[in-house]
Amino acid sequence: MTIEREPDGNAMNAEALLEARGIRKSFGALKVLKGVDLTLARGEVVALIGPSGSGKSTLIRCLNMMEIPTAGTIHFHGKTIGREFRDAGDCTGIGTLRRHVGMVFQHFNLFPHKTVLENVTEGPIVVCGTPRAEAVAHALDLLSQVGLSQKRDAYPNHLSGGQKQRVAIARAMAMRPEVLLLDEVTSALDPELVGEVLAVIRRLVDDGITMAIVTHEMAFAADVADRVLFLDEGTIVAEGPPDETIRNPSNERLKAFVSRFNH
């Protein structure tokens, strides 16, 4: 099976690689997202910041349909994402979306019954049908990029948190994603391990990978993001480049939020 890397996008939306329109999401009576729009252009890095419970994680999880929005639509290359796993009619399937949009989780979620190398090759081999030799070669390259070549045969439970997260990033990159979604990837790490993971992400930013990042690392967000979205109580309250948001916020709520990180 070969994977179409460049599906025909709508010419009108050539800029927008991944787009969320009017996203609402409720869990029972709890309204987590109250109508949010988000556009990711190719090569763009967007940071989502906001207090706990603001809906930023839910929003990023809607972008690869890990959460199915209560209302609103997700578009990839201008095509609407359907509710089915496979492509159906004009709609791109959820499975297709996820093959092109990678995700890294707060709690790593590595496969504990597989070695580091197997974790990274699993997607390409099983989902994309990549020949094993090719998948292994790519995985070893990725593992060396995240500095973990020597751990290829180790099991995840024998790794530190920082190492686990770097493997998780390699696993996501093994799918050669067009977009990478990072959901609080340093929040579960011991403080001294945060740096090594941020260094890996910074290299991906330098490589021009399109990214959405949910993070509490304000300095890092200000440093790597092209655009910052501030969410509060399920809506986007402020949006703009880091200079107008994190560094010099004008919005009162954003100002209060950011000031908590400056000390």
Binding site: N64, M66, F85, G95, T96, R98, R99, G102, M103, F105, N109, L110, F111, E122, G123, V126, V127, C128, A168, R171, A172, A174, M175
Partner: peptide, 10 residues
Amino acid sequence: EAAAAIGMSP
């Protein structure tokens, strides 16, 4: 979720 995120079917 991790399996789903790399495009695996249920």
